[in-house]
Design a protein around this nucleic acid. Structure first.
Length: 741
DNA sequence: ACACCTCGAGTTCT
DNA sequence: CTCGAGGTGT
């Protein structure tokens, strides 16, 4: 009697529940419905019908059993008398301008209608070729940014359609990353607190809200009869850090971020737990008021709330132009990390309440306010899988394959997990929800798992035993090593890595030979080792799609130029284990010819500065291999430069005054007028050193644009002088540290 | 033997 | 940027 699973009502109900919930979410929470309402209704009807036929199969989480998005049964539903709307979003200056234009045009249109109505009431005929819409846009275009300029008030009635209505001043506020709540005071007493929920219905959280220190239980005697105020409950960073410290001490998992923790804290069944979480609130809007003073502007509102001892954020600012609002937004972006709480943007509101009333709202958001969203710093997303990549030296690195998520200004779909132990210690498994952020604003990083008991029985992830390439050779992790390696010489992944490495900027610097082309040439069978780069068949390449005469000529020229790279670069290109830019420079300087390095004993090699037994052995081993020797011979025949140039890097250095002799200058962030590499080169050219990390030996840390937090922190702890760009310039020229600290 | 510096290697996205 | 590990100095 069991029907095919795809036809079973149980299965269909599950599908429908999934779909209806998805569209509910798109409609209510994201405001971006994907299907027409009629189609949605069909789905919902089918679900209701099935549930009527099979009451036993009704799932408690079915959208037919709940109101709105995700209400909890623990907290009684509360209907908002005045809906708590969401805000439209702007992501750049253009969208902000567009919002202001829309509002201005709408106000102008309203006024135009009013005037026309009045005019026709007086028996005058005004309508003709230059009315409304067209005239509006003209006027708006003539004044793209003309908000609230003094003396621009609309006064005359003669040509009302031609003048855009001014928006007046604007209030700029921070957009706090927390939870929107409503607090209801009757005769000055807090009678109800509710979450926003879906905007119409929220949950009663009165008991928990009362435990928040900054929420007054009672307002001063002059409070109005009824006041429903809106605000954002948040967890201050201090409270969040303390809580995690406590978790650490108790050996419990850390909380992922302040926002989620605030949400969790507010939904505690036991208010005494909420009380320990150090939550706080910022109030920013009145939902309903009876028996209060007459307020004319939003800034009046904020002032009034303040006078009632409700916490209002002091950073709110009233400005008179969109330009100034934009400045405020930029300031927010810069201040973001210096605030004791998290923000995710700014909110710009039209100050005058009469204009707010006139503009009104769409079905979901007021027209008189706009939220400017900063890119999120941290996001939760799903860990779809863990894959392994093979590096040019055979190292197998696990990386997270993520459900793409917008974080820190870009969409992230992958992030390295470094090695097996890291995966273990982060306790992540495919299927988990994980927290993703940008380390140093650039590199995506998986912070850890979001704890979720329902998924805690997912299987542990096991490191794959074979290489992902078609040869499926074993991956081995040797005792005392953190990494797994593929030791197969014929591994195509390693070959690709080697070729790319050879062409890379710090090696032979062959432009126009990137990952895509390397793959292509290997697939075409044109390249089987780095020596083949110098014997490429360009006649075959030019026939390939995406290659024209010009691109082939460019590639040819780049390969030609690479033959003259100095010995150190060639050494880097050979892809020898443990040899990087610095050690290659040392070896090239010490031996001065590749033949001498090839024939050197382990002991000879270890003589060089910074070369120990392990590296020496690695170099020796490399040249013991017949295959490698053959590759070297190919390169010799191709005419590559095997000898160290006469002056080497010191050529240029000799020209500059050695102002930084003996100094160790670490740089973080970008310095005006230099690329990252150039800063280091400039320091070395003047006799200094510039390693990548701060230590007690560091002379000074130069802090540029967008500095990394970790270096700064370490330098501060060690009491190392911190220089800005101007001080760095001074140091470079004079060799003196600016006197301060 | 240990601590501390450095270096190498892999990595993301525009 | 982060992690791991080699080299060096004590």
């Amino acid at each position: 009697m069991a029907a095919l699973s795809s036809d079973s009502p149980e299965r269909r109900i599950a599908e429908l529940v999934e779909m209806v919930r998805h569209h509910d979410q798109r409609y209510h929470a994201d405001d971006a419905p994907e299907i027409p309402d009629a189609d949605y209704d069909l789905l919902k009807r089918e679900l209701l019908d099935l549930e009527a036929t099979y009451p036993a199969l009704i799932r408690p989480d079915s959208p037919t059993q709940t109101v709105g998005a995700d209400p909890s049964t623990l907290f009684a539903p509360v209907e908002h008398r005045v809906p708590m709307m969401s805000l439209d979003n702007a992501f750049d200056r253009g969208e902000l301008n567009a919002w202001a234009d829309r509002a201005r045009r709408r106000l102008a249109a309203d006024q135009g209608q009013k005037v026309i109505a009045e005019a026709s009431g007086q028996g005058l005929l005004l309508l003709s070729d230059d009315t409304d819409g067209e005239a509006d846009s003209e006027a708006v275009a003539a004044e793209p940014d003309g908000i609230g300029r003094a003396g621009d008030e609309v006064t005359g009635r003669a040509t009302p359609q031609k003048l855009p209505r001014e928006l007046g001043s604007l209030v700029c506020e921070l957009k706090f990353d927390g939870l929107a709540v409503s607090l209801r005071y009757e005769n000055g007493v807090l009678v109800q607190a509710a979450t926003r929920g879906n905007g119409r219905m929220g949950e009663d959280i009165t008991a928990n809200a009362r435990t928040i220190q900054s929420v007054p239980h009672r307002l001063p005697a002059y409070a109005p009869a009824v006041l429903e105020v809106r605000g954002e409950v948040y967890m201050p960073l201090d409270a969040f850090d303390d809580l995690n410290k406590q978790q650490d001490e108790e050996g419990k998992p850390r909380y992922a971020n302040p926002r989620n923790t605030a949400a969790g804290s507010l939904r505690q069944k036991d208010p005494s737990i909420t009380a320990t979480r150090g939550l706080s609130i910022w109030c920013y809007q009145i939902g309903e008021i009876q028996g209060g003073p007459t307020l004319e502007t939003h800034s009046d509102t904020l002032e009034y709330l303040r006078s009632l001892n409700l916490p209002v954020n002091p950073k709110a600012k009233t400005v008179s132009t969109i330009d100034a609002a934009w400045k405020f937004i930029k300031q927010c972006e810069a201040d973001r990390h210096n605030l004791p709480y998290e923000i995710d943007g700014a909110v710009i509101k039209i100050d005058r309440l009469d204009l707010q009333l006139e503009l009104g709202t769409t079905s979901r958001a007021p027209r008189w306010a706009i939220a400017y969203k900063l890119p999120p710093e941290e996001q939760n997303t799903k860990l779809l899988d863990i894959h392994v990549s093979i590096g040019s030296k055979g190292k197998a690195t696990p990386f997270a394959v993520l459900e793409p998520v917008f974080v820190g200004g870009s969409t992230v779909a992958m992030a390295t997990l470094h090695n097996e132990d890291q995966v273990r210690s982060k306790r992540v498994r495919p299927g988990d929800t994980v927290v993703v952020r940008k380390a140093g604003d650039v590199i995506p990083e998986v912070v850890g798992r979001v704890d979720d008991d329902r998924l805690s029985n997912l299987p542990e992830w096991e490191f794959p035993t074979t290489c992902p390439c078609p040869h499926k050779q074993p991956l081995v992790r040797t005792e005392g090593d953190a990494a797994h390696y593929c030791r197969f010489d014929g591994c195509p992944e390693q070959l690709r890595g080697w070729i790319e490495h050879f062409a890379a900027r710090n090696a032979l610097d062959i432009e126009h030979l990137g990952e895509q082309r390397v793959r292509l040439f290997i697939d075409m069978g044109l390249i089987a080792d780095v020596g083949d780069i110098y014997a490429l068949d360009f006649d075959l390449i030019v026939e390939q799609e995406g290659f024209g005469d010009l691109s082939v000529a460019n590639l040819k020229e780049a390969i030609e130029a690479s033959r003259h790279q100095p010995l150190a670069r060639l050494l880097v290109g050979l892809n020898i284990r443990h040899l990087g830019d610095t050690t290659c420079e040392v070896l090239a300087e010490a031996f001065r010819h590749l033949d001498l390095i090839m024939d050197a004993s382990v002991d000879d090699l270890a003589e060089a500065d910074g070369i120990g037994p392990v590296i020496a052995e690695s170099v020796y081993e490399f040249f013991q291999s017949r295959v490698n020797r053959e590759i070297v011979e190919k390169l010799r025949e191709a005419g590559l430069n095997f000898a160290q140039g006469t002056g080497g890097p010191s050529d240029e250095a000799e020209m500059l005054p050695q102002t930084l002799e003996g100094m160790i200058i670490v740089v973080t962030g970008g310095v005006e007028g230099y690329t990252r590499d150039e800063v280091g080169a400039a320091i070395k050219a003047r006799g200094g050193k510039s390693p990548g990390s701060v230590s007690s030996k560091t002379t000074a840390l130069v802090v540029g644009e967008n500095p990394g937090a970790s270096k700064l922190e370490k330098a501060e702890k060690l009491g190392i002088p911190i220089l800005d760009e101007a001080q760095f310039q001074w140091l470079i020229e004079s060799g003196e540290l600016p006197s301060s600290t």
